[in-house]
Amino acid sequence: MSVSGDKPAPVRPQGFWSYANPVKFLGFSERILPALWWLSGICLAVGLIWGFFFTPDDFRQGSTVKIIYLHVPSALMAINAWFMMLVASLVWLIRRHHVSALAARAAAPVGVVMTVIALVTGAIWGQPMWGTWWAWDPRLTSFLILFLFYLGYIALWEAVDDPDTAADLTSVLCLVGSVFAVLSRYAVNFWNQGLHQGASLSLDKEENVADVFYQPLLVAIAGFVLLFLALVFYRTGTEIRLRRTRALLARQRRA
C-alpha cells in the first residue's frame, strides 16, 4: 500500500527492467526475432547435417548414435525451459511484471514439446541398443514425471479465468513443483539404478563423448537454444497481444 496524493509521474525503470513494459518488450522482440529464427535455422541445419552425414559411426552403437543430435539438445532444453519458467515465476511473484508471467506461460508448451522429443528419440535410440522401447530407467522416468508436471502447469493456466489469478497460482505451482521435481529425480534414482549411459556432456573429460561427435553436438545444442528463445519470444508476443486485445475491449465496453 502506498500513499499517492497528487499522483507524481510514475518512475520508469531503466536498463534491464525497462523491458518489463509490454510495449517495449514487443518492439524489442519484433526487432530480434528475424535474427533469432535465421540463426537457429542455420545452427540446426549445420549441426544436424554435420552430425548425421559427416561423423563416423560409433564402434559399438553403429549409426544409431546419431540420434544424439536430437536427443541431447531436446532433453537439455526440456529441463532448461522449466528452469526458465521458475525464474520467470519468481520475477512475477516478486516484481509483478506481466511480461514475466506471460513468458512463463509461453515457455510451457515449448518445454512440453522438447520433453516429448527427448522421450520419443530416447525410445527410438533405446530400441536397438537395449532391445526395448521403454525401460523404467531413472532418467527416462524422471522425464516422464517432468512431462506430467508440465501438463499440470499448463492445465492450471487454462482452467483459471482471471489472468492475474492464473499467473499467481501457476507461479506458486511452479515453485512447489520444482522442489518436488528435484526430489522425484533423487527418489527415482534410489528406486532403480537403470540402463542409461552416463551424461553425454559433463565437465569430467573421461565421461564425455568423443570430440568428433562433440563439436556438431555443440552446434546442434546452440541451434536448439536459439530455437527455444525464438519460440518463447514469439509466443510471449502473442500472449501480450491477447492481453492487449482484452484490455482494449474492456476499455471500449466501459467508454
Binding site: V23, R243, A247, A250
Partner: peptide
Amino acid sequence: ATAATRAGASDEAFL
C-alpha cells in the same frame, strides 16, 4: 472509476 481515472488496472500496461 471512469475511463479518465482508471489508472492502475492490471491491463493498464498493455495499452
